[in-house]
């Protein structure tokens, strides 16, 4: 037993050494943050001036374009705050829409743009339709669904006809417009007369 004592002591010391090394490395890992968690405060972590952001569809066609005088990204909200935004929607098969405002917020992973202050949306005219012009203090655009809505008072101008209401929703894909309260529509006599004159001209042999 006596002659085995030195080897036992050596094994014991070796074991202690291994344990000590493991504890030391573990302690080191725990005490020093190698990769500190992202700073989640309302301080911008990326920004740019006079930017242009273009999004394409699977086929590579540009379907949304967002420009602005300045953009700031905030880690806590994950939103982009944009000065003087100018959003263009060009979904295949739908008329082009253009939205502008004093200020914009792009959030929900780019699925929503909130236009605040002099919010103005235009659905550009095409062969069949006149310009559709929507104004409000706030307009919310969902570019992927080609949808615009607001719960504020809004004014829509279509040719010389006007439509006022509180709470409005326009789906550019199905081209359906809904006013949820206090609808006030003025169908212009000019538009009516021009349409009638146009149709009578077509009827003439």
């Amino acid at each position: 037993m006596k002659d085995r004592l030195p080897s036992l002591v050596a094994v014991l010391l070796l074991g202690l050494l291994v344990l000590g090394t493991w504890w030391a490395s573990d302690y080191t890992l725990r005490s020093i943050e190698i990769d500190p968690p992202r700073r989640v405060t309302h301080e911008r972590d990326s920004w740019s001036d006079q930017f242009t952001m273009v999004r394409t569809d699977a086929a590579g066609h540009a379907i949304n374009r967002l420009e602005g005088a300045a953009m700031e990204h905030f880690p806590d909200t994950g939103a982009y705050e944009i000065t003087a935004p100018h959003a263009v929607g060009r979904q295949p098969g739908s008329p082009i829409t253009e939205g502008t405002a004093d200020h914009g917020t792009l959030d929900e992973h780019g699925d929503r743009i909130v236009l605040d202050g002099n919010a103005h949306l235009k659905r550009l005219p095409d062969a069949d339709h006149q310009l559709l012009d929507v104004r409000s203090t706030q307009l919310i655009i969902e570019p992927n669904r080609d949808l615009v809505y607001t719960d504020r008072p809004a004014l829509v101008v279509n040719g010389s006809s006007t439509l006022r209401g509180k709470g409005m929703r326009y789906d550019n894909r199905t081209r359906q417009l809904t006013v949820t309260a206090a609808s006030d529509v003025k169908i212009s006599g000019e538009d009516q007369a021009a349409r009638n004159a146009g149709s009578k001209k077509n009827e003439r042999p």
Binding site: H129, L132, L163, G165, T174, R175, Q176, L177, T178, V179, T180, A181, A182, S183, D184, V185, K186, I187, S188, G189, E190, Q192, A193, A194, N196, A197, K200, K201
Partner: peptide
């Protein structure tokens, strides 16, 4: 010259809600 568009009165419609189908 094409006949000038007759003078048609404006039509004003007030209601609680409106649904407009542009198609």
């Amino acid at each position: 010259a094409p006949a000038p568009a007759q003078d048609e009165p404006d039509t004003v419609i007030l209601s609680d809600t409106l649904h407009y189908d542009d198609v």
